[in-house]
Design a protein around this nucleic acid. Structure first.
Lengths: 186, 186
DNA sequence: GTCTATAGATCGATAGAC
DNA sequence: GTCTATCGATCTATAGAC
């Protein structure tokens, strides 16, 4: 009996890991099929647009995850410091202390930057905007909040690069801790 | 008359830009031939190891460039603050305000991380070590210098990611200016 | 040293049986 | 919905003429 997948969203996690692991160009349909356990026929049934639609769906899911666990807490938590703390908790878990790359950041740096430029820009814009608003609610003046929000988001991306380059997850943890203190010390 | 290239080092700049532009997997030999103006025959004459040797040679050249214009000034400039300022000047020029990606960082994030892992790690280790030593010479205590050197190098990488993602070179400039002040304010 | 031609493998994508 | 078979294109790499 052939295995059946209820919805295409069921394969998105494996799809995401495959793109994270091999990059957009490097993630061949053979590797994707291996990672998802699906043949090409099934993959094209779920994603008629092929690999580009697969990557786009993964980016949309990442967007939704960050919206729920990072951006929304920043915007909606009553005490802004709680939202900021929740952001760091979520981010440190999500990126597994730098062992897991940020697919959006990797797409921004890599060969795929033009193909998904709008989605990539929207992700970072919303992150920075939500963090800046929280910092302002926490009592920072707008200019400081704008600079600090960029510093934190860029710092997290840089920490992932560094941790991967050094093969040292602790480098990510150190940077995250430093950024957390900088963001919370009003 | 067929054009002739004196040495393989003559094609390394174009080769580097091609890898920066398209990534390791994305830089096909067709694109590389177009970027360098050389046919496959010539490319394999200079790089018998194929694409992997091409990328390795590019990384070696990048390493040498940073050794000369970034690491050595950090280590050897008499007044450490001058070395640190020279580092920021060189880096801001080299990365063209974030319009040009760091190939080493991109390789660290991307699909190619294992293939060039040693070279990637060595690049970042030497950068951080040289900066940390300069900060200590400038009067910082060792723990602070270690943290700050990681912060600066990761911050630069993150600033490149962010500037590319937002399509806004000013985001790189702002981050570089902030990091420069943090590194120089003893 | 540079080129063209091409091998052999793999790519993304499609067709059609079940 | 899932599979296998297969298409044409493209890939890396090689061979050999000049």
């Amino acid at each position: 009996m052939p295995k059946s997948v209820a919805e295409r969203s069921d394969v998105l996690p494996a799809l995401g890991e495959c793109f994270r692991e091999h990059g957009y160009e490097g993630a061949s349909l053979a590797l994707i099929g291996e990672a998802t356990g699906l043949g090409k026929g099934s993959l094209y049934h779920f994603f008629p647009g092929g690999k580009e639609e697969m990557a786009s769906a993964v980016l949309a899911e990442i967007d939704a995850w960050f919206e729920q666990y990072v951006f929304a807490p920043l915007r909606e938590t009553e005490r802004p410091d709680d939202g900021i703390a929740a952001m760091f908790d979520a981010v440190e878990t999500y990126f597994r202390s730098g062992r897991r790359v940020c697919l959006v950041g990797a797409f921004a740096l890599g060969e795929t930057r033009d193909r998904f430029a709008r989605r990539v820009r929207a992700y970072f814009t919303r992150w920075i905007d939500a963090l800046r608003a929280a910092l302002i609610r926490a009592g920072r003046d707008p200019a400081c909040a704008a600079a600090l929000s960029e510093e934190v988001v860029a710092g997290i991306q840089g920490a992932i690069v560094l941790a991967r380059a050094l093969g040292d997850p602790k480098a990510f943890a150190r940077a995250a801790e430093r950024l957390r203190r900088a963001a919370l010390s009003t």
